[in-house]
Design a protein around this nucleic acid. Structure first.
Lengths: 211, 211
DNA sequence: GTCTATAATAAGATAGAC
DNA sequence: GTCTATCTTATTATAGAC
C-alpha cells in the first residue's frame, strides 16, 4: 500500500497500474477481434509497444491477463452501480442497452468470451457461471421491488429474470453481425413493453429491427 | 455421381461418405469442448482412429471441416423442415426448445461457434450472419401467417422475430452454464406466453428458472 | 521494467511410401 | 485411404543481461 514517492489515495494511478490498465485495454481489443484462444500475447504486447516477454513482467501468464480483463469489467459494473444492490427500474435497462450500442468493442469482447466460456476448461467459465447466477438473482430482486409478485405482463420476477439476460445477450450477437438490420435498443424496449403489458399501445419503442 | 459398384439413390452412403460423416460427428464433439480455434485436427482424427494426415485426406483443411459441420447443420434444419418454408406455430417452438434440452452437445457446438463467429476473420462469420438474417425473415413470415399484423401481446411480427432468436440463444448460454438452475424450455414458453398475451393466465408454462 | 535469446511444445499442411 | 516423416510457423513461458 505505501508508496515511496508520497501518499496516494485508495486506488490511484501508480505508473505500474497505469501500464497494466493500458495492457488490459489492448487485451480487450485483441480478444474482441480473435477471442481468448485466438489471442497471442505478442500481439497484445505490440499494441502497447512492448515485447511479449515485457508484457509477462506485468501479467505472469496469459490466464492472469484474462482474469484482469474480467476484473476490470466487474470494476466497471460496480462503478455504474449495476451490482451495488441498487434498484434498476426496467425502463432504465433500455438506456443501458442503448449505451452499449455505442460501444461495439466492449460488447464484442464479452459476447465472444461468453460464448467461449461454455467450453470445458475455459478459464472464464467459473466467472460467467457466477455472473449469470448473480445477474438473475439481482434482476429478480429489482423487478420484485418495482412490481411486486407479478409484472404487469403476467410473469413473476423469477420467470422474467433469465429472459432479461437472454434477450440482452441474444440481441448483442445479432446486432454485432448486422448493426444496420438489428436495432438492439429498439428491440429490447419492445421486449420491455411485453413485460410491462403495454406493447400494443404505441409507446416510443421503435419499429423493431428485421426485415 | 455415378458409382462403380452399382446404383445408389441420391444421397446415400458411400463408404467414403460414411467416413466423412463419422469425422464430422467427432469434429462437432471436439468443437463443443474446445471451440473451433481450440480444436486440433489431431484430436479429431484420433477419435475416429485416424492420424492427422489421414483426416486431411477427407477434408483438405481445417476450415473445410468446419464448413462440413455447418452444412451438416443445414441438412438437419432442412430435414426437420425448419427452413423449408414450412409454417411453424409459435407453440411448436417450445417443443423445439424442449427437444434441444435433451441434446446439450449439439446446443454447445452452435453456441460456441455463434460466439466465435462475431470475431473478425472467423470462417463461420458469413454463415451466422446469413443464418440470423434468414431466421428473422422466416420467423416474421411465420408469425404473420399465424397472427396477422399484430401478435396478441401487441408486437408486430417484425418486432417479435429478432426477439425469438435472441431468447433461444441467450437461454442456451445460461442453460449450458447451469442446467439445474435454468429451465430452458419453461423459460422459453413463458416468453411465448408474453408474445401471445396470455402470460398471466396460468397455462402449462412452468415456474421459470432462477433462484 | 524491459529486452534478447531460447527452450519446449504444438499446430496446420505437404510429400511420398504402402 | 491411410501412414510416416518432415517443413514451417506460432505460441507460452523461462533465464538472464541491461
Amino acid at each position: 500500500m505505501a508508496e515511496h514517492n508520497g501518499v496516494r489515495g485508495l486506488g490511484r494511478t501508480t505508473r505500474s497500474e497505469e501500464r497494466k490498465a493500458e495492457i488490459i485495454r489492448a487485451a480487450m481489443e485483441v480478444i474482441a477481434e480473435n477471442g481468448y484462444r485466438g489471442t497471442s500475447l505478442a500481439v497484445v504486447a505490440e499494441r502497447v509497444g512492448l515485447t511479449q516477454a515485457g508484457l509477462l513482467h506485468h501479467f505472469p501468464t496469459k490466464e492472469a491477463l484474462l482474469v484482469a480483463v474480467l476484473e476490470a469489467r466487474d470494476q466497471w459494473d460496480i462503478a455504474t452501480a449495476t451490482f451495488s444492490g441498487t434498484f434498476w427500474p426496467l425502463d432504465m435497462l433500455g438506456d443501458l442497452v442503448e449505451y452499449n450500442s455505442g460501444r461495439p468493442g466492449i460488447v464484442q469482447v464479452f459476447t465472444v468470451l461468453a460464448g467461449e466460456s461454455v467450453t470445458e476448461d475455459h478459464p472464464a467459465r467459473p466467472y460467467f457461471h457466477e455472473r449469470y447466477r448473480l445477474l438473475r438473482e439481482l434482476t429478480a430482486q429489482s423487478l420484485h421491488e418495482e412490481f411486486g409478485d407479478r409484472l404487469p405482463g403476467g410473469l413473476t420476477p423469477q420467470q422474467a429474470a433469465p429472459l432479461v439476460a437472454a434477450v440482452m445477450d441474444g440481441l448483442q450477437v445479432q446486432w454485432l453481425h448486422d448493426p444496420e438490420e438489428v436495432d438492439m435498443a429498439g428491440s429490447f424496449r419492445a421486449f420491455v413493453g411485453l413485460l410491462k403489458g403495454t406493447a400494443g399501445q404505441d409507446a416510443d419503442h421503435g419499429p423493431g429491427a428485421s426485415g
